[in-house]
Design a protein around this nucleic acid. Structure first.
Length: 273
DNA sequence: TCCTATGTTGTATG
DNA sequence: ACATACAACATAGG
């Protein structure tokens, strides 16, 4: 499910728990989402800590807690993978099969559910942010993501199709399968177009559409999980016999960059120059 | 039964 | 070393 805006939506689902104490931590230590993470430390430090704030950067979320009587901070990183969800339940709630992490508070249980277990839980106790948070690439809506940065990355990935390149989180944090298709559709660029083959005009167009889709998705989906308008590719891409909302022509599907990709052949043509 | 799924990563290959 | 491609991970639903 989750790309940039969906992650932002799920992050906010735990807002009722901010500034409240965590009384108990429930988890299945062997669940795959805890791979590489010290769950004993996570339980010890988070129990009796106070949840303070949260942030999302791309698909990565951060929850910061203040451990009881300690000067350090507790850093809880959550990644939703393909099927992860955050939700709120009553304090006496009993975790179901896919509820792998529960932070129990007096008034709420904060639940991380993930059926496919592609998600991930990271944890650190330290005064400064751990590397897995501090070293994340700049947000696509920040001033650090410039046309020049985009241009340089496209040159380095010159032989890869743009669809695959847009999915690279090291440069496009938060973009996932549907956002990549939406961006390329708006920019009228074929998903198989090689990254190194864009002229300066198209690079600028691509840049603009990246920012447009990020901004609008956050505003619409990130706010309350509303659907984007009918004018977006979003609502048509999985429909059987789906039609391009701009040209009315039939949409096409193929696997590109290892992912099912949808584009409008009437609008997105492979270009040799 | 077989195929698909809004993601990441380890490994093979060039 | 660097860039690219793809199988593997685990479960549910059509």
């Amino acid at each position: 499910m989750p790309e940039l805006a969906e992650v932002e939506y799920f992050r906010k689902q735990w807002n009722p728990g901010l500034r409240h104490r965590i009384e108990k931590v429930l988890l299945h230590p062997k669940a795959r989402i805890f791979r590489g993470t010290n769950t004993a430390q996570l339980i010890r430090v988070l129990t009796n800590s106070t949840l303070q704030r949260s942030e999302a950067r791309g698909k990565q979320m951060l929850f910061v807690a203040k451990p009881h009587g300690a000067k350090t901070q507790a850093w809880l990183g959550l990644h939703l993978g393909m099927t992860g969800k955050l939700r709120i339940e009553p304090p006496d709630f009993h975790p179901a099969r896919h509820d792998h992490l529960v932070l129990r508070q007096a008034k709420h249980s904060l639940v991380f559910q993930d059926a496919r277990l592609f998600g991930r839980v990271l944890f650190a106790e330290s005064s400064d942010a751990p590397a897995w948070w501090a070293k994340l690439p700049p947000d696509l809506l920040s001033s650090k993501f410039t046309v020049k940065v985009l241009n340089q990355f496209l040159k380095r990935r010159a032989r890869a199709p743009l669809k695959a390149v847009l999915l690279m989180q090291e440069r496009f944090p938060g973009i996932g399968n549907w956002m990549a298709d939406e961006i390329l559709w708006r920019a009228a660029i074929h998903p198989k177009q090689l990254a190194g083959s864009l002229d300066a005009i198209r690079i600028r167009t691509l840049y603009r559409e990246i920012q447009f889709v990020c901004r609008q998705a956050l505003r619409i989906i990130g706010k309350d999980w509303s659907d984007p308008p009918d004018s977006w590719l979003f609502l048509h891409r999985w429909a059987r016999g789906g039609k391009c909302p701009r040209t009315g022509a039939k949409l096409e599907h193929a696997t590109i960059g290892g992912r099912t990709t949808c584009w409008s052949p009437a609008r997105q043509k492979l270009r040799t120059t």
